[in-house]
Design a protein around this nucleic acid. Structure first.
Lengths: 345, 345
DNA sequence: CTAAATTTGACCAGCGCTGTCATCTTGGCT
DNA sequence: AGCCAAGATGACAGCGCTGGTCAAATTTAG
């Protein structure tokens, strides 16, 4: 039915071991044999049986994705990217939803790795920012790649995919500044997520660079939720001097702010500009659609998986391993921001 | 490191063959030996190595979940239920997002089954309602369980989990009727999804039973999206005689309707009641929160997986196989519906 | 208490692949 | 040409389990 390594070996006129060598990128296979084998592989559409591989090898061919994120869109996108990359490299993806705040989380992760013999793990926030998880995995000598907020590749750590929240937030803030806004508020996400801090820093930097200064009353703590956005906007709108623009730490918060504004009969963007972050489907379902920063989650996930596979594969190009991809979410301008609110002043 | 079948055999004082018999539910194992082995399994926390099982057996121990649904919350919930059930039975879950409308979809599914040697498949709408997919799977002799809309178990088909959309819609409509509403509109979902038709039928039945009749102008075709809800509400609100309540085919549509109402300065529920369907997180993020019907997606998914495993396991209790679970989503009353709008009349 | 039926174990092959180690090539050197 | 080391390739065992066969042990029924 399905081609096995034996079929490929016969077809190419080599031993199965040589086919195995080619499949595993092992050195000491001559150029022409390599090509011969590859040709046979392609012709027979050979795909190694992962069960056999797992059984025979000390290594494993599945990676895990642990998640605990209320944002379903984010998870779905991540999965998509991971799956694509896994498929490409003949790996399997094991998904494991769990509760990051559970006290036994480290043991749970350990057990998962052991039981499912995982080759590696993809960690997204909040897991990617939990030092005890990273420590446990390092101790177990399991590879992992973290997707974290940051802009400057670290020379000591090579297993991260960085999202430059700072720069993206800087851009969004700049967009608002360029429209003419000077009284801009910021609705924070969860304190524990470094992304929120990075975005706030980018926000402040843009304002400072413009020669303005940030009004502490305009920086509202909160968390990554719709409700938090409603609350935050309520506080801001109750201030004697209202801001003319709000930059929310993600689209959900922005949607909440938008909602509160609608409730208060504040026209968007005529009387108030609102920007979000992430470009989730959410940001297109609001009215008006949200100006936001596009975070290409699928692509980010795929990159993370690629990085993991490079680690995992024993004979990888060492130079490539140290590449730390940095993603800068791009500004997406929609109808929720305009110059109108500040021109009236 | 990890316990193998040999360890269990030694621990229980039996041969590995007997352990294997127990693991695979084979007959002709005496009660007490069975217990002895189970005790050893529990004590050693034995989990069969799925790679070895897959390799040795003609059967496989992984099931697939194919999805193509814009509703990320739905998918996440489904996954959760499937994973729980898989874990319990020692199966693996393979997820496969794809495009249901792609012309090569049947071949794609076939290839997936072949390549990953799937024991079975879980099909949700729209896949569960595509006859050519079911036919292809039957031809391949691959088990599958469909999650579909319906209320009466079919005697010929035994691989379905039913969601009684009719009754749930009946209940929601009744709730509106009991509040005193008589002019109730219905915003349809996609025509291709039978759930929309079932919900509409339940809606009509409730109205008819009340001795009233449905106004054709109040039945607005559409699809399962926020935008469709906005459009639908717009049409309804433009009618000379506005309805006093709207029953939307799902929460997203309801959210769209809610949004349009807010835009038109129609107070909810004072001037108009709106109900949704599904009880997705969406329904709690709107203001006011939506009256809806709770569809326990995780539980439904888990049931579907259980059903599939019963099919797949060769020595299962035949009587159980023919049980077709029927879920009736329960009414959840929140602030978006009240008697106010119809009392004013 | 015996014959028949049931339960269990010993043993083997083999699933498709990798790891180890032995063997065969190759090419550089004298 | 002859020799040797390094490189390329192959033979073979074994990963943990299932499925089959058959014989031995045990239970059950008559």
């Amino acid at each position: 039915m399905k081609a096995t390594i034996n079929d490929v070996a016969k077809h190419a006129g080599v031993s199965i071991k040589t086919v195995s060598r080619v499949m595993n990128n092992e050195p000491s296979v001559r150029q022409d044999t390599h090509e011969k084998v590859m040709a046979a592989i392609n012709e027979l559409q050979y795909q190694p049986n992962s069960a056999a591989r797992n059984l025979a090898s000390t290594r494993s061919y599945s990676i895990g994705y642990i998640y605990d994120n209320p944002n379903a869109y984010y998870i779905i996108d991540m999965q998509k990217g991971l799956l694509d990359s896994c498929k490409k490299h003949g790996y399997e993806l094991l998904i494991h939803p769990t509760n990051a705040k559970s006290p036994g989380i480290v043991d749970e992760v350990k057990e998962l790795v052991n039981k499912s013999r995982l080759a590696g793990l993809i960690l997204t926030p909040p897991f990617s920012e939990m030092p005890h998880i990273a420590a446990a995995l390092e101790e177990m000598k399991v590879d992992f790649v973290r997707i974290i907020s940051g802009s400057t590749p670290s020379p000591t750590v090579n297993n991260c995919v960085l999202i430059d929240d700072f720069t993206a937030a800087f851009k969004i803030t700049n967009h608002l500044l360029e429209l003419g806004h000077t009284d801009i508020a910021f609705l924070c996400g969860d304190e524990e997520h470094s992304s929120s801090g990075e975005r706030l820093a980018g926000f402040k930097a843009a304002i400072t660079k413009r020669g303005l200064h940030t009004n502490p009353k305009y920086i509202v703590p909160g968390h990554y939720s719709f409700e938090s956005g409603v609350e935050g906007a309520k506080k801001l709108m109750a201030l004697p001097q209202r801001p003319t623009a709000i930059f929310a730490c993600n689209d959900e918060i922005a949607a909440g702010a938008l909602f509160h504004a609608r409730l208060m009969n504040i026209q968007i963007p005529e009387q108030l500009s609102i920007a979000g972050f992430e470009n989730s489907p959410f940001s297109r379902q609001t009215w008006p659609p949200l100006t936001t920063a596009h975070q290409p989650n699928s692509t980010i996930a795929a990159q993370a998986a690629e990085l993991l596979f490079k680690h995992t594969r024993p004979n990888a190009n060492k130079a490539q391993i140290h590449a730390q991809p940095v993603f800068i979410p791009e500004l997406v301008v929609r109808e929720s921001t305009s110059a109108q609110a500040c021109q009236k002043k």
